[in-house]
Design a protein around this nucleic acid. Structure first.
Lengths: 112, 112
DNA sequence: AAATATACATAATTTTCTTATGCATAATAA
DNA sequence: TTATTATGCATAAGAAAATTATGTATATTT
């Protein structure tokens, strides 16, 4: 993730959320989708993305399937059942974090 | 910062924002204020806080003044002029980050 | 023919945290 | 009265999660 420098820790949430919504995606596709959805605000770097995908796979949150398309390899990732649960956890954490930061930074929002 | 695990990079923004609002604060006071404002959601650890304060001071964003109160030392931090500018930058970045994440994670929010 | 896009991967480094430890005084609880 | 908790600062070791720099390879566009 570049062009934001901020708030490391959200990449996993982004990956899980995108894969939770689509049947399957491959790495490069994820980088393009994020660029599109954020109007270029967020650019996921490969150095961050691929290790993150490998870790999620190792944790059993994603399954992988390799396919050859146009003579090039693609590794399609698909969310598992426990990945779906973790997605929900991560999204809750994110919502909670945003609420917390707004309470801190914007006096108008107070918690509870 | 503990009890949240989330989103490294926000501590500096929090410190600057709090100091931008009050005349001066000391480290321990900041930890208590954050705990109070977030209803215990966010607990800033000393291991994160003090190095962060030292760095902000070294960058010229904060000034420091040592006082002895009740026979104990307190290091009061006060925001500088360039600290005020940086606060505004950081708050914009935060607002931008939140908008970006909502666009990614919540289909209802789209950028622009 | 050269540059850009597609597609994956890893290593070195940096940033920013957590955890652990250390020192010291004041206030409260057992 | 003694032990614990609170107040107050600090740093070192380690972990986590990025950035930056490479590397390989094919396809497409300029």
């Amino acid at each position: 993730m570049s062009n934001s420098k901020l708030y490391k820790g959200s990449l996993t949430t982004i990956i899980l959320k995108l894969l939770n919504e689509s049947d399957k995606m491959y790495g490069y596709e994820i980088t393009q989708k994020v660029k599109e959805l954020t109007k270029g605000e967020l650019k996921i770097t490969e150095g961050a993305l691929y290790p993150a995908l490998h870790k999620l796979e190792a944790q059993g949150l994603l399954d992988v399937e390799v396919k050859k398309v146009d003579n090039r390899l693609r590794k399609y990732y698909k969310i598992t059942e426990s990945g779906e649960k973790e997605t929900s956890n991560k999204l809750n954490e994110l919502a909670n974090y945003i609420a917390t930061m707004q309470a801190l930074v914007n006096p108008k929002f107070s918690l509870e």
